[in-house]
Amino acid sequence: MVRNNKQTISNMAKGLAVILLFLVIWEIAAIIINNNYILPRLGDILLVLVHPLASVLGGASLAQNAAVSLREVLTGFFCAVAIAVPLGLLIGTSKEVDSYLNAFIQMIRPVPPIAWMPFAIAWFGLGFTSIIFIIFMGAFFPVLINTIDGVHGVRTQWTDVARMFRATSLERVRTVVVPGAMPVIWTGLRVAFAVAWMCVVAAEMLPGTSAGLGFMIMYAYNLGQLQVIGAGMVIIGIIGLGADLLFRAGQARFFHWQGRG
């Protein structure tokens, strides 16, 4: 236990050291360049960050923009999960369904989510729904593909045990396929959440939005306020890191049975 704690602290220290090094290099470069329109000083970025409730550039505050983006991410992400997980279970367990849908999925999957934006605007108009659709498209495929892979990775002997005990198809899915595939599905959720963040920022940068971190970054760019862009990026990074830590904690909590320390 003591050894594990020491290892964790050591790993955290290594991570912090790299972040610190990056900040030092940034600050030195900013001093040398000495041009706020190219590289803002860390102090200027910090000034925006320490006032999260203050209006930024005459608009919504940093916290409000972050909240808007987070709401959009969570909505799009959970919509994607709600459809991709059951569909992935269906495709993974049925060769028939797989043979119908595989080619279609592989054709749609490589299309960058943001490329759907013109369609999204045409179908849903400018604003919230279009952004949700883009996030949905970004998060959907990592969850779907991982769910299918997770189901395919379920050991035949586990399903044989369920069959031997005369479990119904639904019981087999509920008691063997879902828990057996869950670690891989979880990885898919983790990847999908990161993609969802990238999508929201990109989608909010497009015309027609009036709030969110992506909008704030784009607006600050138009006004040449690079310290606001930096602050927005820091917030995105912090939320991303927090989400990843949550996913890791969930992994340690729910999948400790994998026995990987």
């Binding site: 002997q157 586990w158 044989d160 045990v161 031997m164 828990p179 049975w257």
Partner: peptide, 13 residues
Amino acid sequence: AAMVFQDDALFPW
């Protein structure tokens, strides 16, 4: 009948 497999096939979760 109930079967015991070559490797235990216990559910790890």
